[in-house]
Computed example of a mutant assay.
Amino acid sequence: MTNQKVLFIGAGRMAEAIAAGLIHTNASMNERIVMTNQRDKKRLAELKEKYVVDVTQDWEAEVKNATTIVLAMPPEVHDEVLEKLSKLVTNQFVITVAAGIGPSYLEERLPAHTAVAWIMPNTAATIGESISLYAVGSSLSESHKQALTVILNSIGSSQLCTEDEVRYLTAITGSAPAFVAYFSEALIDSAMNYGVSKELAQKLVVQMMSGSANLIKHAANPSAVRKQVTTPGGATAEGLKVMEQHRFKEMIHRAVDATNSKANGSI
């Protein structure tokens, strides 16, 4: 992102993850990053010390100097910020990482032909392992696409989607890490039921999950891994039978549907 200056409006965990990723891939990038929020001076001081970036509580004064603006505040704050931003942007690239705020939403509230994009990362962005879904508006140039690619690569892998696909697949890529963690907690509890300490149970389950994820990634076929582990009529098959009896897959489908309903305002 040579000669690019990135302004973050919002300084939460996702803003930090993206900024840290950019700096990790380009050590001099810290000189071209400005982090902002309106209320938490302590948070800004921490980011300034940790990453040696510029910080301010007056984001409006920084818009003219930015080439890319990342909206990293809650969805409910977007209307207020976009109203102010619409009077300040010229040819800046505006990206949001907020749930439910797609390119069409941004384009309706910003001047015509403003380049916009929507990125939905997940929590693994904090360690550079996100699978980020993204959708773009209708006015991106090649330089905008290049800037977007740099940002996406700084936090992991990515997949271009339609706006609707991002809206509904975020339950799979964004919320499902919590489902996986909850499943891990249940396995930890099960291990502890056999008398082992929480520390040991957690160590065993975390390594099992990590190894299994890598195995599935290597095989690119979860069904193949399940069949590899499962001997017909064996102990693993008996455990899977209980999961089928309790409609495990149906439960997951219902959890995904509920997540999407809540995210899209149906609940």
Rank of each mutant, 00 (worst) to 15 (best):
V55C: 12
T68S: 06
N65M: 13
K84W: 01
D54G: 02
K50F: 12
T68Y: 04
V97F: 02
R43N: 08
I69E: 06
A98N: 08
V94R: 14
V55M: 12
K41S: 08
A66R: 07
L82E: 14
E60T: 14
T90G: 11
E46H: 03
T68F: 14
I69V: 12
V97H: 13
V94C: 05
F93D: 06
K41V: 13
E60K: 06
A72H: 09
E80Q: 12
L44V: 14
N65Y: 07
Q92W: 00
K42H: 11
K50M: 10
L44Y: 05
K64Y: 07
W59L: 12
E83A: 02
N91W: 04
M73W: 00
T67D: 03
V63Q: 01
S86F: 01
P74F: 05
T90C: 02
V53P: 12
L82A: 12
K41I: 09
T67W: 00
V52Q: 10
E80G: 11
T96H: 11
K84D: 01
K50S: 03
L85A: 04
N65E: 01
L47F: 04
V97W: 01
V89S: 02
L71Q: 15
E46S: 02
A61N: 08
D40P: 10
L44T: 07
V94T: 10
A98P: 03
E83G: 03
P75Q: 13
K87D: 08
L88N: 05
T67Y: 06
L85E: 15
Y51H: 03
I95M: 10
V89H: 13
L88F: 02
V55Q: 10
L88C: 04
D79G: 15
V94A: 03
V63N: 02
V97Y: 00
Y51G: 07
V77H: 11
A45G: 15
T90D: 08
T56Y: 06
A72S: 08
E80M: 06
L85V: 11
K48F: 10
V55H: 08
Q92A: 08
L44I: 12
V97L: 10
K50W: 05
V81E: 00
N91Y: 02
Y51I: 02
L85S: 11
N91A: 00
